[in-house]
Amino acid sequence: MSENKVPMVESARVSKSFGSNQVLKSISLTVNRGEVLCLVGPSGSGKSTFLRCINHLETVDAGRLRVDGTLVGYREKGDKLLELHPKEAALQRREIGMVFQRFNLFPHMTALENVIEAPIRVNRVPKADAIRRANELLARVGLADKGNAYPAHLSGGQQQRVAIARALAMDPKLMLFDEPTSALDPELVGEVLDVMKQLAKDGMTMIVVTHEMGFAREVADSLVFMDGGVVVEAGDPREVLSNPRHERTKAFLSKVL
């Protein structure tokens, strides 16, 4: 988008195994500041695992993963890597927002309490400020009047929008979305995508795992197709979607389009 491209996420030959099951095989890709990357691929291809690595919810086995120039989960000392203390890892995570397929709102808290929890506990923002900001964010996702509702009383689309507001409350420089609309009834998908589109327009750097190809075509700056833990194809979303070069991409797209 912008002329001088600053990388926000740099993944260089990142690998990850669970036991003998190698889930990520040498993933290399870059997301520049302000860009939106859509990640698509069949179930089990490692999309969620890759997102979780960026957030250090999983630890990578090989390669280097950097967010805004800083190595994720490790500190470099000479040519050695030192594991980060959990507190330092938590500091890194604050700057990365994550939105889950199943929302994962805190059910014992109201929408507003969900949004102010981390700013107050983690960033030590004064409560009044946190509430003011939370109300702004809830208004931004179209839920100005739902602050006092418990998640159980909100529709799926509303819950997911609260979850987005909750992540934004930490002022992240990067947002990760893991199939944010897959658990929603079809008529609720649009309201969540609209919020995400607005977010992209406002310049947020985003990585979105999704099966919504319309969204990818319209919003994404690049599209990555993963299968079996490798990046099969990457490029301009309109290009990849209309002229996939690989057989596997073609086969996958013919199923989801």
Partner: peptide, 23 residues
């Protein structure tokens, strides 16, 4: 308690003890 709860709290930067006591 659903594991997603712990995950969401961790992703927000909450520490293990905050996650435990608050969530």
């Amino acid at each position: 308690v659903d594991r997603g709860q712990e995950e969401a709290a961790t992703a927000l930067g909450m520490s293990w003890s905050q996650t435990m006591w608050r969530i």
